[in-house]
Amino acid sequence: MIRIIAKDLRINPLRTGLTALSMFIGIIALIAGVLVGTLGRDYLESINARLSGKTPTYSAIVDAASLADPQATAALQQRLASFGPGVASAQYHLNDLAIWALSGDGDDASGIRHITVIVTDAARTGVMPAPIITGTWLTEAAEPATLETVVNENARQYVHDGTITLARTGNPQQVPARVNGVIADGADEPVIYVNAATLQRYWPQAWEPDGLTVLVHLSDGTDGQQTKNALNDLLFDTGIGSVSTWNRTDNADEYEQVIGFLQFGVIITAVLLLSVSAIGMINIGLAGIEQRSRELLIRRALGATRTSIAIQVIGSSVLLSLIIALATVLFSAVLVWAIPWILPVDSPLEPPAYPYTAAMVAVLASVATSLIGSLAPAIKAIRLQPALALR
């Protein structure tokens, strides 16, 4: 029977090719649909994470009692680096820190350029990830040997010979700072990230913070209120202060509905494509039965049972679907493998893993589609009357 089924596929190459193409499109559509849905979800999550933190992220505005004390802030950074409930990053508010525009096109005659300057630490990208375009991110507090910064793409214009010049409003002093790298943070305006530990160590005259915000990305299963209490204990132990405002900032609710709609649309599209594939297989199968009716009638007249005729018709479709499914899975695996080479350097997306579950579902759906698509031709074939072969 296997030989008959395999031979059956070679009788009409055009019919077999059209059926194979229909199956191929259906399987690729399902795998691609799931992959697009996954990439779409990852893209929205990545964009949101760059701007407002990974899910879930909380922002704690600290009622600070002592930020000017170097020992207190050093202890704070050390404790935050090993914060149990999640990844914690401190952001210090230094309103008078600015950039010296060497081109002379500053906001005032002194060349001071008032752009966004964020004084933070190396843990920030663990909360608000940003792809590295060139270079590296800020280093750990104990490692750097000089004042260091990182700039976003829009702030590249202020980098000269690998350094950027920091200044303070109303103060003629200019301090060069090393630029570790350039990141894609999603901001539309120029942003400079300054390593808080190195600023305090190598330019203590500028260390006059008037506020502190701690961003916390919670670990899985961690409760927000318990994390707030843990942070309050940490701030009390270091003598920094206490949490005055505790809010969730990752905006997950705003894009969850969009993601759900996207995935629902992808699933519906894949189902429709598979349905079209099944309808095409039915049409091709019925046409094939019309063409082969005399052959099947002769087999019936020679003693073939209805069951063997049905197995022949259905088996050829199932065998073809398995062959095409294997070829399609290999083809889609090559495409997924090539995606990292297509993504731009500053893409917020991580290279996707191959959707094995989707591929398995696609293969099963292909077999199910071939079964459904071959039922009508099989029923028509077994209803043929052997006596018609004598006409």
Rank of each mutant, 00 (worst) to 15 (best):
L138P: 02
T165C: 04
Y43V: 10
I324S: 04
G221W: 00
T269L: 14
A376I: 15
H114P: 08
T163K: 13
N232G: 15
W203S: 11
A145I: 05
T165N: 10
P129V: 11
T38E: 09
S332E: 09
V258I: 13
D161A: 14
D237W: 03
E350N: 12
A65D: 11
A123D: 11
D108G: 08
D253K: 07
S332Q: 10
D233F: 07
L231Q: 02
G239P: 03
S66D: 15
G126F: 03
D105R: 15
D210H: 15
Q312I: 05
A389I: 01
A130W: 12
H217D: 15
S308R: 15
S321Y: 00
P351D: 08
N12P: 09
R79V: 02
N171P: 03
I5Y: 14
S275C: 02
Y193I: 13
P340H: 01
A376V: 15
T116R: 14
Y58A: 12
T116C: 00
A301P: 12
D63H: 05
A167E: 07
L343Y: 07
T269D: 03
D107C: 04
G221A: 06
A6P: 00
G315F: 07
G162H: 07
T139Q: 14
V313E: 02
M1K: 03
S370M: 01
I311D: 08
I311K: 15
V367I: 09
E295T: 05
S66G: 10
A177D: 06
D96C: 02
T120E: 10
I259M: 05
V182M: 00
T307A: 13
A304Y: 06
A206V: 05
R41Y: 12
A197L: 06
N154V: 11
T116W: 00
A338F: 12
I4G: 04
G53E: 06
V271G: 02
S66Y: 10
A325K: 07
L384M: 08
A29H: 07
A167H: 04
G315C: 07
S82M: 02
G37E: 04
I279P: 12
L390F: 14
T269M: 13
A32M: 12
L335K: 03
R124A: 07
I11S: 12
A327D: 02
G53Y: 03
Q205D: 12
A187S: 13
A141P: 11
I61D: 13
T73A: 05
Q77L: 13
G260E: 08
G17P: 01
D185S: 11
E295H: 02
I323P: 02
P351S: 07
N48R: 04
A387Q: 10
L286K: 09
P377F: 05
A381S: 04
V334Y: 03
A130S: 15
R156C: 09
L35Q: 08
F83S: 08
I259T: 14
L297N: 01
A196Q: 15
L320A: 04
L384Y: 05
G303L: 09
G181Q: 11
D63G: 06
G181N: 10
L273P: 02
T169D: 08
T116M: 06
Q91R: 15
I267T: 10
T238Y: 09
I379P: 02
P344K: 03
P13G: 05
E189P: 00
V271Q: 00
S293W: 01
S110D: 13
Y354Q: 01
